[in-house]
């Protein structure tokens, strides 16, 4: 297997590459139980985070992952940089190129920005979320978390609930789950369901039908109210009643002993309740911890083009 330069989405990874990244994350996670959590793997290399959209969690996760691999970490402060002065992404990349960065971790509100950057630089580009397009490290950490629960995922059913239309997490996580043999269903209000989804994905408009499908795990998405520019649903309260994980639905989850996942950060009272946050079978914290191990594995698997 030739190491790839970039991680832009799940679709471009081979099955072999997915397995390689997930398998290698296991020993990286074991490292966290040791008092010294650091290995010298990427000593002398530099990773830069380039976040055009704020995200404390994902950025920190990448920074911790890189530090534990002994890479130097630096942050390109977008707010303070000339990007807000209208400098184009391409011009910024020329600057980074001149700095001889090895890995650049990019988040942007427009789909396809990491692809554009990757085409124009030697640096390894890691997509940390672009628009509604892809969030491959989230998908990999979700798959890793699911594999911890069930070593063989074939035939398992995952129900993804929420704003599918605007969710890069839904796109990437559903993709990797299907690649690992799982069955995937989406549950969303009609106004937040894309008109054309892959035919293998089941579509539900209400919880009752979704329960009948007997999912093995429920994955809630964050309702990105701040991004909703059109009247997709009447109110957060109505969304919660019809599509959220209410306490009644939480009881069904508990009765069936189903694990719960969420990419964070959550909107309490919208897609989830306080009780949901305390649910004993929640895997949300596992997702956070696994995120570091998986991102270490991703950094380890990529190779920038030589100078």
């Amino acid at each position: 297997m030739t190491p790839r330069k970039d991680l832009l989405d799940i679709a471009s990874l081979s099955d072999e590459e997915i397995t390689f990244i997930l398998d290698n994350a296991v020993p990286f996670k074991d490292l966290f139980r040791r008092s010294v959590k650091k290995v010298p793997t990427l000593k002398g290399r530099t990773m830069l985070t380039l976040f055009y959209e704020p995200s404390t969690r994902t950025r920190s996760s990448f920074e911790v992952a890189a530090s534990r691999l002994s890479a130097d970490v630096t942050h390109f402060d977008v707010e303070a940089s000339s990007i807000v002065k209208g400098e184009s992404v391409i011009d910024t990349i020329d600057t980074l190129e001149a700095m001889r960065i090895d890995y650049v971790v990019v988040r942007h509100k427009q789909s396809g920005i990491p692809n554009l950057i990757a085409r124009n630089t030697r640096t390894s580009v890691i997509n940390a979320g672009d628009g509604w397009h892809a969030h491959p490290t989230q998908a990999l950490l979700d798959a890793f978390t699911l594999r911890e629960r069930w070593p063989d995922l074939a035939g398992r059913r995952i129900l993804i609930v929420g704003d599918i239309q605007h969710s890069r997490v839904a796109r990437s996580t559903s993709h990797i789950c299907r690649r690992l043999g799982m069955q995937v269903a989406y549950l969303a209000p009609g106004s937040l369901m894309p008109r054309e989804t892959p035919p293998e994905i089941k579509i539900f408009g209400n919880w009752s039908d979704a329960w009948d499908w007997t999912p093995d795990v429920v994955y809630l998405l964050r309702v990105q109210s701040e991004r909703l520019t059109e009247p997709f649903f009447p109110s957060a309260a109505e969304y919660h009643r019809h599509y959220g994980l209410t306490d009644d639905r939480l009881r069904i989850l508990d009765q069936r002993a189903l694990p719960l996942m969420h990419p964070g950060p959550v909107n309490r009272g919208v897609e989830i309740t306080d009780a949901g946050m305390n649910y004993s079978r929640s895997l949300i914290n596992d997702q956070v911890e696994n995120g570091i191990a998986v991102r270490m594995s991703v950094l380890y698997s990529l190779r920038p083009e030589p100078l």
Binding site: R195, E196, T197, P198
Partner: peptide
């Protein structure tokens, strides 16, 4: 708007 706009998140 179709299967490709879904896949590319556009």
């Amino acid at each position: 708007e179709g299967s490709v706009s879904y896949a590319l998140g556009l």
